[in-house]
Deep mutational scan, measured.
Amino acid sequence: KVMEIKLIKGPKGLGFSIAGGVGNQHIPGDNSIYVTKIIEGGAAHKDGRLQIGDKILAVNSVGLEDVMHEDAVAALKNTYDVVYLKVAKP
């Protein structure tokens, strides 16, 4: 199931950690970017929809399929206060 989640960045950013990407696979044979941690009190935690194990398909208009881990981190960092995440639920 794919959904779009709109998050408003807090003082600590979006409030979640990711793993995965080309050269840094979270699941062997899979280059996808996965949510590995939700920080308590952060934007994602308060919103409640993003969960550990969700796959991040895109940030705003930037696709995160088959990208390097660093590029995924940069895509999440290089955002304004309002961030749209395209997410696939497991």
Results as ranks from 00 to 15, higher is better:
residue 1 K to A: 04
residue 1 K to Y: 03
residue 1 K to I: 05
residue 1 K to Q: 03
residue 2 V to A: 05
residue 2 V to P: 03
residue 2 V to E: 09
residue 2 V to W: 04
residue 2 V to G: 06
residue 3 M to I: 15
residue 3 M to L: 09
residue 3 M to Q: 04
residue 4 E to G: 07
residue 4 E to W: 06
residue 4 E to C: 06
residue 5 I to A: 01
residue 5 I to L: 09
residue 6 K to Q: 09
residue 6 K to D: 08
residue 6 K to G: 05
residue 7 L to S: 01
residue 7 L to V: 08
residue 7 L to R: 00
residue 7 L to T: 01
residue 7 L to A: 01
residue 7 L to F: 12
residue 7 L to N: 02
residue 8 I to E: 06
residue 8 I to T: 14
residue 8 I to Q: 12
residue 8 I to V: 12
residue 9 K to W: 04
residue 9 K to G: 10
residue 10 G to S: 13
residue 10 G to P: 13
residue 10 G to E: 10
residue 11 P to V: 08
residue 11 P to F: 08
residue 11 P to K: 07
residue 11 P to T: 12
residue 12 K to E: 09
residue 12 K to W: 05
residue 12 K to M: 10
residue 12 K to C: 07
residue 13 G to Y: 03
residue 13 G to R: 04
residue 14 L to M: 15
residue 14 L to C: 04
residue 15 G to A: 03
residue 15 G to D: 03
residue 16 F to H: 00
residue 16 F to W: 01
residue 16 F to Q: 00
residue 17 S to A: 14
residue 18 I to Q: 02
residue 18 I to M: 13
residue 19 A to G: 15
residue 19 A to H: 09
residue 20 G to C: 02
residue 20 G to M: 02
residue 20 G to I: 01
residue 21 G to F: 02
residue 21 G to H: 02
residue 22 V to H: 13
residue 22 V to W: 05
residue 22 V to K: 10
residue 22 V to Y: 06
residue 23 G to L: 08
residue 23 G to F: 05
residue 24 N to F: 13
residue 24 N to I: 06
residue 24 N to P: 04
residue 24 N to A: 11
residue 26 H to Y: 11
residue 27 I to K: 13
residue 27 I to R: 12
residue 27 I to E: 09
residue 28 P to N: 14
residue 28 P to H: 15
residue 28 P to K: 15
residue 28 P to M: 05
residue 29 G to E: 13
residue 29 G to N: 08
residue 29 G to F: 07
residue 30 D to V: 04
residue 30 D to R: 04
residue 30 D to L: 03
residue 30 D to Q: 06
residue 30 D to Y: 04
residue 31 N to Q: 03
residue 31 N to C: 04
residue 31 N to D: 15
residue 31 N to A: 06
residue 32 S to E: 03
residue 32 S to W: 04
residue 32 S to D: 09
residue 33 I to V: 08
residue 33 I to N: 01
residue 33 I to R: 01
residue 33 I to W: 04
residue 34 Y to I: 14
residue 34 Y to C: 07
residue 34 Y to L: 04
residue 34 Y to V: 07
residue 35 V to C: 13
residue 36 T to V: 15
residue 36 T to P: 00
residue 37 K to M: 14
residue 37 K to W: 06
residue 37 K to N: 15
residue 38 I to P: 00
residue 38 I to N: 01
residue 38 I to E: 00
residue 39 I to L: 09
residue 39 I to V: 14
residue 39 I to E: 09
residue 40 E to A: 12
residue 40 E to T: 14
residue 40 E to F: 11
residue 40 E to I: 14
residue 40 E to N: 11
residue 40 E to W: 07
residue 41 G to K: 07
residue 41 G to P: 04
residue 41 G to C: 06
residue 41 G to Q: 06
residue 42 G to N: 04
residue 42 G to F: 05
residue 42 G to M: 15
residue 42 G to Q: 11
residue 43 A to Q: 14
residue 43 A to D: 07
residue 43 A to L: 07
residue 43 A to W: 03
residue 43 A to V: 13
residue 44 A to G: 03
residue 44 A to L: 02
residue 44 A to Q: 01
residue 45 H to K: 13
residue 45 H to T: 04
residue 45 H to D: 14
residue 45 H to Y: 14
residue 45 H to F: 15
residue 46 K to E: 11
residue 46 K to Q: 12
residue 47 D to M: 03
residue 48 G to D: 04
residue 48 G to T: 06
residue 49 R to W: 04
residue 49 R to K: 15
residue 49 R to N: 15
residue 49 R to E: 08
residue 49 R to M: 14
residue 50 L to G: 00
residue 50 L to W: 00
residue 50 L to R: 00
residue 50 L to H: 00
residue 51 Q to L: 11
residue 51 Q to F: 05
residue 52 I to G: 06
residue 52 I to C: 15
residue 52 I to Q: 14
residue 52 I to D: 10
residue 53 G to F: 04
residue 53 G to D: 05
residue 54 D to M: 15
residue 54 D to W: 08
residue 55 K to G: 02
residue 55 K to I: 12
residue 56 I to E: 01
residue 56 I to M: 05
residue 57 L to I: 14
residue 57 L to W: 04
residue 58 A to S: 14
residue 58 A to R: 15
residue 58 A to D: 06
residue 58 A to C: 14
residue 58 A to L: 07
residue 59 V to Q: 01
residue 60 N to H: 03
residue 60 N to R: 02
residue 60 N to T: 02
residue 60 N to W: 01
residue 60 N to E: 05
residue 60 N to K: 02
residue 61 S to H: 11
residue 61 S to E: 11
residue 61 S to L: 09
residue 62 V to W: 09
residue 62 V to S: 15
residue 62 V to Y: 10
residue 62 V to K: 13
residue 63 G to D: 13
residue 63 G to W: 10
residue 64 L to D: 01
residue 64 L to S: 02
residue 64 L to K: 02
residue 64 L to E: 02
residue 64 L to I: 15
residue 65 E to S: 14
residue 66 D to F: 09
residue 66 D to H: 12
residue 67 V to Y: 14
residue 67 V to N: 05
residue 67 V to A: 14
residue 67 V to H: 06
residue 67 V to D: 03
residue 68 M to E: 14
residue 68 M to G: 14
residue 68 M to K: 15
residue 69 H to K: 15
residue 70 E to C: 13
residue 70 E to I: 13
residue 70 E to A: 15
residue 70 E to Y: 11
residue 70 E to P: 10
residue 71 D to L: 06
residue 71 D to Q: 11
residue 71 D to W: 07
residue 71 D to S: 13
residue 72 A to V: 08
residue 72 A to N: 01
residue 73 V to C: 10
residue 74 A to L: 13
residue 74 A to D: 15
residue 75 A to Q: 11
residue 75 A to N: 10
residue 75 A to G: 05
residue 76 L to S: 02
residue 76 L to Q: 02
residue 76 L to I: 13
residue 76 L to Y: 03
residue 77 K to L: 08
residue 77 K to H: 08
residue 77 K to C: 11
residue 77 K to Y: 09
residue 78 N to S: 13
residue 78 N to A: 12
residue 79 T to H: 11
residue 79 T to C: 14
residue 79 T to D: 13
residue 80 Y to A: 07
residue 80 Y to W: 09
residue 80 Y to I: 14
residue 80 Y to P: 05
residue 81 D to V: 06
residue 81 D to P: 14
residue 81 D to R: 10
residue 82 V to Q: 12
residue 82 V to F: 12
residue 82 V to M: 15
residue 82 V to P: 09
residue 83 V to H: 04
residue 83 V to S: 06
residue 83 V to E: 01
residue 84 Y to N: 14
residue 84 Y to W: 11
residue 84 Y to V: 10
residue 84 Y to F: 12
residue 84 Y to L: 12
residue 84 Y to S: 14
residue 84 Y to P: 04
residue 85 L to W: 00
residue 85 L to S: 01
residue 86 K to D: 13
residue 86 K to A: 07
residue 86 K to N: 08
residue 87 V to I: 08
residue 87 V to F: 09
residue 87 V to M: 04
residue 87 V to C: 08
residue 87 V to E: 01
residue 88 A to M: 13
residue 88 A to Y: 15
residue 88 A to I: 13
residue 88 A to T: 09
residue 88 A to E: 15
residue 89 K to E: 06
residue 89 K to F: 04
residue 90 P to G: 09
